[in-house]
Design a binder for these strands. Sequence first.
DNA 1: TGCAAGACTTGATATATGTCAAAATGACTA
DNA 2: TAGTCATTTTGACATATATCAAGTCTTGCA
Lengths: 208, 208
Amino acid sequence: MHRLEDLSNNKRSYTSGAYLYRTGDCFKSLHAIRSGSFKTRVLHEDGREQVTGFLMAGEIIGLDAISTDHHTCEAVAMENSEVCELPFNKLEELSRDIPSLQRHLHKIMSREIVRDQGIMLLLGSMRAEERLAAFLLNLSQRNAAHGMSGAQLKLHMSRLEIGSYLGLKLETVSRTFSHLHESGVIKVRNRAIEILDFPALKAILARP
Amino acid sequence: MHRLEDLSNNKRSYTSGAYLYRTGDCFKSLHAIRSGSFKTRVLHEDGREQVTGFLMAGEIIGLDAISTDHHTCEAVAMENSEVCELPFNKLEELSRDIPSLQRHLHKIMSREIVRDQGIMLLLGSMRAEERLAAFLLNLSQRNAAHGMSGAQLKLHMSRLEIGSYLGLKLETVSRTFSHLHESGVIKVRNRAIEILDFPALKAILARP
DNA sequence: TGCAAGACTTGATATATGTCAAAATGACTA
DNA sequence: TAGTCATTTTGACATATATCAAGTCTTGCA
């Protein structure tokens, strides 16, 4: 596993709003997010766009590009962030020698597929309030997994971006936040969200 | 590449409606569809479900399960079908020796991620008619890729299943089919669809 | 072949979310 | 610090899709 370190000494910084890659860019490396966060989005010919993910520290970004050797979406930093470059052919080479790395890489890719299936379920069959509840709980969980608070969330994305991700208009996102705020489930102060009543938030999801 | 054949001599048949695997099943093998077609769907606690894919001959099924060694969705045959079992640890073993196979496997997984992103775009930002147009064009393209007609489609799934996949109710699917039929873009006779006007169908997608 | 169950279509109506608009708030810059 | 611009909230209204309800058509089985 020490050989992995050869791979990971190449760190780069991105300021908020900077592109990690754009649609069509040639693919050479995956990137591990060391700090900060990124959003990914796909673009349709007619200017339509869809945010497909919000990624934070510890997560791997760029898996879409392996398919065609070109990026099929773009990744933008949502705050000042650091990534570690993982040249993909080195990764493949290493994973031929190290079965546990190979397995790990496969699991990472598969996990992304599972994550996308979850979003499809959300987009295909949930109402606005359920989508937002699922979104907040997911964020909370990932925050907690990094030793940060599960209750206090600092959103680095706008209502517009949340809307795009959840298949809602920004006004609907705003209204739904307000509604959850009024019912005492969460506290909303601009982009700082506090989850006050976890069971209630989970109950929104559990009841179809 | 001949060693691949060792892998692929294990064929199995599934009658229409039979499960290839269920949610929670232990994962051992991917499956290559030799003939026929399958649908995959994810289940939510509250009985909610979402069809996440319709797979046909030549496609690989089961990639979701690598993540946890257990299947996170279920796969059901939509007609009498044959699959070829690909034991995953043998696949990993072989791909350590054969870089081109390794690369191929990675591309297959990445392609699935890209496909899912496309569905997220569809579910998140398209109207009913656009979703159905995208669905039909995709089906047509895959049909044509297998040497079959791109214009004559035989649907193996019900309106309910199409609706689940596209995030619509079955009535909306039916109405939208009827509408496309009336406007002369397609001809609908039960599950036999004929695409009469490709440019018109594509135009529905291009105009936001 | 005929019957029954499921699949599909179509209509009337309800509703969640979108659209348009304006005001309020917050953030950045000069 | 003030001023400008972007973001967010909130309201009134529009609309796409969902829901409920018949009714018709297929299909598979007896």
